[in-house]
């Protein structure tokens, strides 16, 4: 049984964004403050860009015996802005809990999308990370937002852990963390609102339990229904005036999503493109540039 004083955190991120590192740093900082803490990822295939989960449990008083994944979190932190429309990030979030989102959208805009008996905090961590760290990896930045909103750990104890983990790069990471701390916007509880029922793309797909005996999939190539395009952080843009229509981009596309249009030029199907950038790298005439997702 989980004790009452244990705080549970669920991190939503994408493979490679550092959700696991965030959870680890949180736990290490809590342990540094003489608390009891756990950090662990959800087990599964580790794929760059795919939605992933990481978990924390922190208790000031008691050792934590529970080892299962967090189902009813007190705090949910979302590292990737795209995830809020993709999966149900507030699944199981406790009344009075916290939802902390990295987004460029305003807090009112986001609040209209979610309504529930919990508090919302928004920070534009991607812009902070790009400015201060020069990469769109927001794990340490989002820790600033977590500290500001919930105070589960202290920023000074985090500082020490950052130095151990990142060495020379700790300074910039801490700066990003502090900036997020300063710019996080917090809303109060919005109760009484009608809870919106939302369906997510994944829920419309067939379920494994509906398969015939022997797990035979009769619908060939039905991964085509699955949008892998929302994994990407950047997308290719063609400059047709330089294109010689050789098709090397199409040949080397690991998503098989680049095809020749009627006019002879090539385009990527954004529904599948994961933004790896191979096409831009391999193009003979360098007519492809990778543009960051808005």
């Amino acid at each position: 049984m989980k004790r009452e004083d244990t705080i549970e955190i669920r991190w939503h991120g994408r493979g490679g964004q550092g959700a696991v590192t965030s959870a680890e740093l949180t736990a290490l900082s809590a342990i540094h403050e003489n608390k009891f803490a756990q950090a662990f990822p959800s087990f599964g295939p580790e794929r760059r860009g795919a939605p992933v989960l990481a978990f924390n449990r922190i208790s000031a008083e008691h050792p934590i015996r529970v080892r299962s994944s967090v189902i009813k979190p007190d705090i949910v932190v979302v590292l990737d802005p795209g995830l809020v429309t993709l999966i149900n990030v507030v699944d199981g979030l406790k009344p009075g809990g916290w939802l902390i989102v990295n987004s460029t959208r305003s807090i009112d805009d986001l609040q209209s999308e979610f309504s529930g008996d919990w508090k919302l905090a928004v920070v534009d961590a991607s812009s902070i990370a790009r400015e201060l760290l020069r990469v769109n990896i927001v794990n340490t930045t989002m820790l600033g937002a977590l500290i500001k909103t919930t105070g589960v750990i202290n920023i000074d104890s985090l500082k020490e852990q950052l130095e151990v983990k990142f060495g020379a790069r700790a300074k910039a990471n801490l700066e990003a963390c502090r900036k997020a701390f300063a710019t996080t916007v917090i809303s109060s509880i919005k109760t009484g609102g009608q809870k919106k029922v939302r369906t997510f793309a994944v829920e419309n797909l067939a379920k494994w339990s509906e398969l015939p005996v022997g797990c035979v999939v009769t619908d060939v190539g039905n991964t085509k229904q699955f949008c892998t395009g929302d994994w990407k952080a950047q997308h290719p843009v063609w400059n047709d005036s330089k294109c010689i229509k050789c098709g090397i981009c199409s040949l080397f596309c690991p998503e098989f999503c680049i095809s020749q249009q009627k006019d002879g030029y090539f385009r990527a199907n954004e529904f599948y493109c994961k933004g790896c950038g191979i096409c831009a790298q391999e193009c003979w005439t360098q007519c492809i540039t990778m543009v960051e997702e808005a």
């Binding site: 760059r48 949008c227 050789c246 950038g277």
Partner: peptide, 24 residues
């Protein structure tokens, strides 16, 4: 340079697979 065009455009693996971005 134009050799990629010689390859059949028929795919036997569909898009939407869950490989990491840039999977070789």
């Amino acid at each position: 340079i134009y050799a990629p065009k010689l390859i059949t455009s028929r795919e036997y693996i569909a898009s939407g697979h869950r490989a990491c971005s840039g999977c070789g």
